[in-house]
Design a protein around this nucleic acid. Structure first.
Lengths: 339, 339
DNA sequence: ATGAAAGCGCTAACAG
DNA sequence: CTGTTAGCGCTTTCAT
């Protein structure tokens, strides 16, 4: 930048060469202790900070990773970022965040920009539009460029890379069976994310559970395209159907469900049980407190970062590692909203 | 990165020089249309993307800005990031995010790393620890390096730079007076962020309102150091004091307050009114829905970014602009939780 | 133990 | 209209 102190400046002051300064700062054994001390002293006094950009250009390693997310205004993704950032800081990496706002256009843009050498690797969760349209061409560039990528949560099979998800299918399947055992006979699945892989899997898990219970013909599925229509759709559904449990596709829709169900005169959990996804402070403080499927975002974010880094560091290995798909365990946290 | 296609590659294929390619891609008038076409064709076929790092090194402009935040797991900061990212994308900037987790140590680290030429400017909201300890030395480096900085929300007077806040003082002052007019006589201020400038100002606004009402001796202030102690502290307070309204310092504490107040047998708003900060989907779906002071995060984030960019672009101006402190208007959104 | 020189990829002044 | 050259700040042989 403007007033950057450079190696040259330090070199000039001490009357040595830039390379001597460079080596001193990197504590090379080639340099005498005395020179090292001098360099260090001057560097500190000038508040010298090495220029990362120049280093990156030289080494073609940026020590930065790109993170592309559909949104950040969600407990789930916020926790993921926090976990990635935590881990990145420990390992001396910086994170560059791009938000796709669930559009394929912004996702493509983010991808193409990050492809320009700004980052050593990418962690991505696909936009709704991408998953809906199944257009993955923009993601193919990564492998061509040999830029490591890790997908998490919203992944696709069409692209070969490391992947991390929870077992979305199992999570709702188990939740459904659990509710059934507790006595719920008319279990409903409510989704605001039907266009995502995650939403699909959660729906399928629910349907599988019904099949196992020989109730597949009785599936009760509510799909809500956006939050403006949440209230009218759910309200109508409650009127027209006999329901005693609702599994929702995510945290926010569970919170909305809690309110609407009660507004319509039902007691939770006596009349209707409600289960959501993603833990946090808020599920503890809803009325009633919310039973949820904990996705262990901390572990997921850490895992995504670690996988990416080991891929980056193995980039030049003779034998490329096989791509992995890590499926993390969820756990169920029972609170007041479910039987 | 590894398989980067470079200008050289294109040049070699076409048998021209790298600078010709560079100029062609930048649509320089010096180059014939024919050559430009050829270059473009080859560039596209190779999937060429210019290397940002090299460009930055050359131009000493990175087209990146750093964003340092206390946390991301908060509706307020998430919305701010969204707004900054939106604006940044429009203007062709990328954002580099660092989280201080409210510690001064991580904040210092972030600052020193961003000082190394990785970004053209910085947007920061101070960590709790920084504001508590009043140690700002690490922030002085910015001006020395002439790296533009914009502070928002949690700011300090000791550092000269552009600042953006809402009128925290006025917001609680008005909310207090508003509640008083509605008939609340024992208005309480509950804060989980007493160690921040924002928390202080909100408290002072509340106190000022009491003074104006000649009730300053009756101030009812609840300070909660962390969420583990939320329930016990508030519960005890409710037992020992006669309260008919609570203004909380932020969104999350309002949500917690809603629950605890009702659990202890009070009706909201008939017995006790509750007002929080920061709008979003959740305040609409709490039970009862939450009256809030809207901080217009979208505008705040945009403003922060725009201010930073105009500062960056005016870096080389003869007459440096005066630093500004923009104070944004809030608005009150009344829902069911307050009279 | 130190320094000179080359080069990472790109741009821009200057020549031709 | 195109090419040569130099240089952004740093690292890294290779000489000395």
């Amino acid at each position: 930048m403007r007033n950057q102190v450079t190696l040259k400046d330090i070199a000039a002051i001490l009357g040595v060469s830039a390379s001597t300064v460079s080596k001193s700062l990197n504590d090379s054994h080639e340099i005498s202790q005395e020179t090292k001390n001098n360099v260090l002293r001057v560097a500190r006094s000038l508040n010298y900070v090495p220029n990362d950009i120049a280093r990156s250009l030289k080494s073609s390693a940026t020590k930065r990773i790109g993170v592309i997310l559909p949104t950040i205004e969600s407990d789930f993704f916020a926790k993921i970022i926090r976990a990635i950032e935590d881990e990145a800081t420990k390992r001396n990496y910086k994170i560059l965040i791009s938000l796709s706002n669930d559009t394929i256009e912004k996702e493509k843009e983010a991808v193409s920009i990050l492809l320009n050498g700004s980052v050593d690797g990418i962690i991505i969760s696909l936009s709704q539009e991408t998953q809906d349209s199944q257009e993955y061409s923009h993601l193919k560039n990564f492998s061509e460029r040999r830029l490591p990528v890790v997908m998490f949560d919203r992944v696709c099979h069409e692209i070969e890379c490391d992947k991390i998800t929870i077992d979305d299918f199992e999570a709702t399947r188990e939740a459904t069976l659990h509710l059934y055992e507790k006595g719920c006979k008319n279990i409903c699945f409510l989704s605001t994310i039907s266009q995502t892989s995650v939403g699909q899997l959660r729906k399928e898990g629910y349907i599988r559970a019904l099949e196992e219970l020989n109730k597949e013909s009785e599936n009760l599925i509510i799909e809500i395209p956006n939050y403006d229509q949440f209230n009218p759709i759910l309200k109508k559904y409650l009127k027209e159907h006999n329901i005693d449990a609702i599994i929702t596709s995510d945290q926010l829709s569970a919170i909305c469900t809690l309110k609407i169900v009660q507004e319509n005169g039902f007691n939770i959990p006596n009349d209707i049980s409600v289960i959501g996804f993603t833990d946090g402070t808020i599920p503890k403080y809803t009325i009633p407190s919310l039973s949820i499927i904990n996705q262990n975002e901390g572990q997921m974010g850490k895992q995504a970062f670690d996988t990416l880094i080991s891929r980056i560091e193995n980039m030049n290995a003779e034998v490329p590692k096989e791509f992995t798909h890590e499926i993390l365990k969820t756990d169920f946290i029972k609170r007041q909203s479910s039987l």
